[in-house]
Structure formats: structure tokens, C-alpha cells
């Protein structure tokens, strides 16, 4: 033995270091499995093109063209779908024993999950950039000032971070990658459609409209439309539900709420009962 290793008592770790080590691993996984990136590359581009050209003619949006209207919704939906990535990554880690390996190491509490979340956040730069470029090509424009545009992107990354923690919680609760897929189609998929993602809120039928009005996917889509200076397809009445009148604020409340609830729950779930 030539290399001298500091004795256990002298080692100093920390949540940031451990999180970074796990995040770096996650990023390497992404780079080394380019085929697994289709959901953040091809899929968002396909969605922009499909909705812009296939439905674009059929759906009329008052005071706007559909492609401009569309982008806010596509951004929101892609971000929400991003939750599965991290959930599936965690489920695979569980299935192939990586989680056990991590749990036998003296890592800071929560750092495995935080590392996955961080890697996932970095990953999300890819679809957001690609969608923006694709949107610009099909005719989407950023019409308000730089400050609003920067705010829009900041809101997207915050929302992404919050959604990632939903995914982390799913990954901590659901036993297998298949269960994650099942949950995705049963719960998350409908949530992104009962919203103003692809059609203006005021065109939805009565009860659905109320549900959609309080759906954070609606507020996220409409917040982006407002900040980018695109039209939402209608002007909210003064007596409309509060979220409809204040999409940015309402989205922000959800972001904080999701993180405050999901992150501690996920960490607790992860460190407790993962194998029992």
C-alpha cells in the first residue's frame, strides 16, 4: 500500500460535494446514452412541428396566430414530461443496485436525490433551447422586452426544478421503471391536456375550464405567453378565477409549494423504506 488514505475520523464530506459527484455521474450517463435523450431532443421538436402544422390550421386563437400561442403550452408540457426522466433514472438505479451501493457509503443525507435533480436540471437546457430555436423557425416571436424574456426563461427553469422533485418523489415511491411509465400515462399525461396547453382556456367546456383554470400547467403556459408577449387567446374577466388573472404569481406559488412538499418527502422516503 503506497497511497495513504486519511482515516475515517479525518474525512470531511458535505451535501454539496456529494451532490456534485452524483450529478456528474448522471451527466456522464446522459452523454453516454445519446439514444436515451430522444425525449428531450426529437420529441419536443416533433411536438412543435406537429401542433404547428397539423392542428395549427384547425385551432383558431383570437388576436394571435396559433404558432405563437402554441409555444407557451409546448414549453410547459415538455417540462412536466421531464419529471419521468429523473423518476426513471432513479428507478433504474434502484433496480440495478446503485442505490444500495450509495446507501452503504457515508454520503450526506439527500445528496443522491439532489444529484439526480441537478443532473436533470442541466439536461433540461437541451429541450428548452431546441424548442426555442424550433419555435423561432416556425414563426414564434419574443415580443416583449429583454427583462420579460429573461423572466420567462427563469420561470421555466424554476418550474423545471420543481417538476424534477415531483419526479424524484415518484422515483422514491414507485418500485420499478415500468411503474413509473404506468403512472406517467395514467396521471401526468391527462394533467397536461386538461389545461390551456394547446387551446385557449376559454374554449374549454364549463367544468373542465374550472379544473384547467386551477391547473398549474395552464398557469405556466399562460405565464410564458404573457411574459413573451404572445396572446393567450382571450382577456380574463375581472371576476375570473385568481390564477387566471395572475398566472405568473400562481405558477410561482406552485413552484415553491412543490419543492417544499416533495423534496423533504422524497428524502424521507428514500432514506427509510426503500427495500422493505
Amino acid at each position: 500500500m503506497t497511497v495513504s488514505v486519511p482515516p475515517a475520523e479525518q474525512r470531511r464530506g458535505g451535501i454539496f460535494k456529494d451532490t456534485w459527484v452524483v450529478a456528474r455521474r448522471g451527466l456522464k450517463h446522459m452523454i453516454r446514452q445519446p439514444e436515451a435523450l430522444s425525449d428531450v431532443t426529437i420529441q419536443p421538436i416533433m411536438f412543435v412541428l406537429l401542433f404547428a402544422y397539423v392542428f395549427g390550421g384547425a385551432i383558431a386563437v383570437q388576436g394571435s396566430n396559433y404558432r405563437e400561442f402554441l409555444m407557451g403550452g409546448i414549453f410547459a408540457q415538455t417540462i412536466v414530461f421531464g419529471a419521468f426522466n429523473v423518476a426513471i433514472a432513479l428507478a433504474y438505479d434502484r433496480a440495478n443496485g446503485a442505490i444500495d451501493r450509495f446507501r452503504s457509503l457515508p454520503m450526506a443525507r439527500g445528496s443522491v436525490l439532489a444529484g439526480h435533480a441537478l443532473a436533470s436540471l442541466v439536461r433540461s437546457v437541451l429541450p428548452i433551447t431546441l424548442m426555442s430555436l424550433c419555435g423561432l423557425i416556425v414563426g414564434w416571436r419574443i415580443r416583449d422586452g429583454v427583462v420579460d424574456a429573461v423572466s420567462a426563461y427563469a420561470l421555466m427553469f424554476l418550474f423545471t426544478f420543481a417538476i424534477i422533485w415531483v419526479g424524484v418523489l415518484m422515483g422514491s415511491l414507485l418500485p420499478s421503471p415500468e411503474a413509473v411509465q404506468g403512472f406517467a400515462f395514467a396521471i401526468i399525461f391527462p394533467i397536461t391536456f386538461v389545461a390551456s396547453t394547446f387551446v385557449p382556456l376559454n374554449t374549454l367546456p364549463g367544468p373542465l375550464q374550472t379544473v384547467a383554470a386551477w391547473n398549474p400547467v395552464t398557469s405556466m403556459s399562460d405565464a410564458l405567453r404573457e411574459l413573451f408577449g404572445n396572446r393567450r387567446g382571450f382577456v380574463p374577466e375581472p371576476n375570473a378565477d385568481w390564477p387566471v388573472r395572475h398566472p405568473v404569481a400562481y405558477t410561482f406559488i406552485w413552484i415553491v409549494g412543490i419543492i417544499v412538499v416533495c423534496a423533504p418527502l422524497a428524502v424521507r422516503q428514500y432514506s427509510r423504506t426503500i427495500d422493505d
Binding site: 488514505v5 486519511p6 464530506g13 460535494k17 457515508p106
Partner: peptide
């Protein structure tokens, strides 16, 4: 990676 997560430091971990 395992060395780093044992907090022995990246340099020592690399040598090890």
C-alpha cells in the same frame, strides 16, 4: 467516484 463519496479527496481517490 466511490473514493470521493468516502470523502478521501479526489486526488487520493485517483491515486488509489
Amino acid at each position: 467516484m466511490i473514493g470521493e463519496l468516502h470523502h478521501i479527496g479526489r486526488r487520493v481517490a485517483t491515486e488509489r
